[in-house]
Structure formats: C-alpha cells, structure tokens
C-alpha cells in the first residue's frame, strides 16, 4: 500500500499507514475451557490516535486487552508493536494498562504510585523501597502528575483520593512509565459523569498532543463519539465494526448491543 492510496478509515491526526501502526493485532484467538472468547480479532492503533472499543458485555474486550499486554496468553494470533512481534509475556515497557478498578496501592502516596511506573527501567538496588527512588525520577513523576492536574495532591495516600483523581494518578503512572501505547479497560465506568468526561478528555489529549497511541474500552457511546477518533466494535470476539467516531450510527450500536441470543452461535445451538 502506497502513501498516496486512500486508507479507510482515515482517523483525523493519525498516521494510519500499515507501517506506521503503533499496535497491530491480527487473528487473535483465545478460548477458556473450550469456550471461544476471541475469534480471530483484528485491531490496529496508530500513534496520535484515540480509539474507542465498544461491545456488549462478554464480547471479549477485556480479554483482548489482557492478551495484548501479556496478562493472558492468546491461543493464536499476532501482536505487533511498531511492526515487531511483542513478547508473549510481560514486561511490555512500551505499553501501559489502565483498569476500571484503577489498581493503585492505597497506602502509598500518589507520587510513590506514579514513580512505580518506572520500575521497569530501575535497577533493583534503586527500587526496593520508595525511599531509594532517584531524585530525577521523583521530579519526572511530578511532571507527570502535573500533566494530569494532580500535582497538588502528590503527597496524599492514593486511598484518600476520589475515584476520578485516582484514575488520573494511574494515567500519570503510565506516563512515568514512558509508555507509547496506553490501553484502558473501562477507565471511566466507575466514575461520575463529570469525572468520566475529564478522564476521557485527558486520554484524548494525550493521544492528540503527545502522540501516544490510546485505546479505551468505553460503555458510553456518547463519550466515544465526542472524544475518540475512531471506533472499533467487538461482537463475539471479532471486530465487526470499524468507523470514524463521527460516523457512528444508531444502527451500528443496535447491532453491537443486540440481545445475546440473536447472534451467538453457541446460544443458537442451545436453543435447538
């Protein structure tokens, strides 16, 4: 494919050339105890792009992200990071994952939590306890906290922050990790509408202003429409929809969120 040939979909601000993809997933398969969860999933994500992943409960979104970051081992498929195969097990320093449950250490300060993002590049003797973290790292972590608007709360234990604030600290941790790809699994499902708006806008900014490749599982199509560049829809472990966010239609959503038994092959068999 040449540079001049039209690539569809053409996400705004994203280099959607095949060679330019930050993350490319091809034919990902995964089943649990004989139940197929990922059925040949394809995904692509470009630097500077904010991709929203939509799909009904159980369509395999979390499993897909966990396979990509190495928390789950796929049965088959290819995961390419900047065109090169990603290892099948962690660590994947270029990728960070953001969770619905946030997963900060509540007893540690926001700053220490952010510093922990850099563990992968620290030798053990500088990282056995937060007391040993180098000063440059603390300074870098403060910059990351400032980027998410949380510098003022750096010294507070993470457990004392609100959900939205904690999620922003988790994003700062990903920045401190110097991740180029951020994968977020329902980052705002536990947040109130205002905090959700703020966090999704932050993820979009990181993609558009810092050129990070960001993919987020969202359960609010409206947020996806307003902030994402592109939407990929999952249905029964396959990407069945790939469209610019602005072009997302009600019919697309109706297909994605159709009641389970209408399309699921397993369910059809059960009804026979």
């Amino acid at each position: 494919m040449t540079m001049t040939s039209p690539t569809w979909p053409a996400p705004p601000g994203a280099a959607a050339r095949v060679g330019g993809a930050a993350l490319q997933v091809r034919g990902l398969r995964k089943s649990f105890a004989g139940r197929t969860v990922l059925d040949g999933l394809d995904l692509s994500l470009a630097p500077g792009e904010f991709l929203a992943l939509l799909g009904a409960n159980g369509s395999g979104k979390s499993t897909a992200l966990r396979c990509v970051v190495g928390l789950e081992r796929p049965d088959a498929g290819e995961i390419l990071v900047h065109g090169r195969p990603a290892d099948t097990a962690p660590p994947h320093r270029r990728m960070a994952m953001i969770f619905q449950q946030i997963h900060l250490v509540h007893r540690r300060t926001a700053l220490d939590n952010v510093c922990a993002g850099a563990l992968g590049r620290l030798p053990l003797r500088r990282s056995l306890t937060p007391l040993l973290f180098p000063r440059e790292l603390r300074e870098e972590a403060m910059v990351c906290l400032d980027r998410v608007g949380m510098a003022g709360r750096a010294a507070e234990p993470a457990g004392r922050l609100s959900g939205g604030q904690r999620q922003r600290v988790a994003i700062a941790r990903a920045l401190c990790q110097r991740a180029e790809i951020i994968l977020a699994d329902e980052p705002v499902s536990a947040l109130d509408p205002a905090a959700a708006e703020q966090v999704v806008a932050l993820l979009a900014d990181l993609a558009h202003e810092q050129g990070l490749a960001v993919a987020a599982v969202l359960h609010q199509p409206d947020l996806a429409r307003r902030h994402a560049d592109r939407v990929t829809g999952l249905l029964h472990g396959r990407a069945t929809l790939d469209t610019p966010a602005a072009a997302l239609t009600a019919a697309d959503l109706a297909t994605l969120y159709a009641p389970d038994h209408q399309h699921h092959p397993d369910a059809d068999q059960e009804h026979q």
Binding site: P91, H92, G120, T129, A170
Partner: peptide
Amino acid sequence: IDLGPRDALRVGGASGVQAAAHAVLPAVL
C-alpha cells in the same frame, strides 16, 4: 490480596521482586 495492583506494575515492566515490594507487601503490611 487483590492481584490488580501487581498486574498493573508487571504490565509496566516491573520484575517479580519489584512488584512484590511495591504492590503486594504494602497491601499486606
């Protein structure tokens, strides 16, 4: 304990010992 914080650090490249020191031990102290 909840394994989430450990997994979050492992994804980011922390070694097993580092993840124990920064996610597991603080939770069980």
